[in-house]
Computed example of a mutant assay.
Amino acid sequence: MSKVTVIFVHADGREQLAKTEAGVTVLQLAHELGFELEGACEGNMACSTCHVIVDEQHFERLPVASEAEEEMLDLALGLTATSRLGCQVLLTKDLDGLKLYLPKAARNMMGF
């Protein structure tokens, strides 16, 4: 199986390249790597703490966000036109080279 490459840009501007198998979410990959991407609802799309900002050049390659995801994104700090929830971005071969920015802060509305 071929690997998918993802470039994470941390809040301090540091870029980190990651490779994974297709079929995992951005949130799962970030947790495997120990990155600061909370995911308070454990990927159940009940919070916005896994908010990531997709590089404009790669955003059009993603499937359109569902209405439920859009509603959760409205709760995210630093929302942009290319914001997505990491739990909803499934990494596929078509997304190889995806560049994502990790926000400086997250708002945990779940109280955890």
Rank of each mutant, 00 (worst) to 15 (best):
M1S: 11
M1A: 13
S2G: 07
S2Y: 03
T5Q: 06
T5D: 08
T5C: 11
V6Y: 00
V6C: 01
I7S: 02
I7H: 04
I7T: 04
V9E: 07
V9Y: 05
H10P: 11
H10R: 15
H10F: 14
D12A: 08
G13Y: 09
G13E: 08
G13L: 10
R14C: 07
R14H: 10
E15G: 04
E15N: 06
L17K: 12
A18N: 09
K19L: 12
K19V: 13
K19P: 07
E21K: 11
E21C: 09
E21N: 12
G23I: 02
G23E: 03
G23D: 01
G23T: 00
V24L: 10
V24W: 06
V24E: 03
T25K: 07
T25A: 10
L27C: 12
L29M: 01
H31I: 08
H31V: 11
H31T: 14
L33P: 01
L33N: 07
G34Q: 03
G34H: 04
F35D: 04
F35E: 02
E36Q: 08
E38C: 06
E38Y: 10
E38R: 10
E38M: 14
G39A: 07
A40W: 01
C41P: 04
C41I: 02
E42S: 15
G43T: 05
G43D: 05
N44H: 12
N44A: 09
N44M: 07
M45R: 07
M45W: 08
A46T: 15
C47E: 00
S48N: 04
S48T: 05
S48H: 09
T49A: 00
C50V: 00
V54S: 06
D55W: 07
D55V: 06
D55N: 12
E56N: 05
E56R: 06
Q57A: 11
Q57Y: 11
Q57L: 12
Q57I: 11
Q57K: 08
Q57D: 14
H58S: 10
H58D: 07
F59R: 15
E60D: 12
E60V: 12
E60F: 13
R61C: 03
R61M: 04
L62P: 08
L62M: 13
S66T: 14
S66W: 04
S66P: 06
E67N: 10
E67A: 04
A68M: 10
E69K: 05
E70Y: 03
M72S: 03
L73Y: 11
D74W: 02
D74F: 05
D74G: 11
L75P: 09
A76H: 01
L77Y: 09
A81I: 14
A81M: 13
A81G: 11
A81K: 12
T82L: 06
T82M: 00
T82K: 05
R84A: 03
G86S: 01
G86K: 02
Q88S: 09
L90D: 03
T92E: 01
T92C: 05
T92K: 02
L95Y: 04
D96T: 08
D96E: 05
D96P: 05
G97N: 15
L98H: 01
L98S: 00
K99Y: 14
Y101M: 04
Y101S: 04
L102T: 00
L102E: 01
L102C: 00
P103I: 02
P103D: 01
K104A: 15
K104M: 13
A105G: 08
A105L: 11
A106H: 02
R107Y: 14
M109S: 05
M109G: 03
M109K: 10
M110C: 08
G111T: 15
G111W: 14
F112P: 15
F112Q: 13
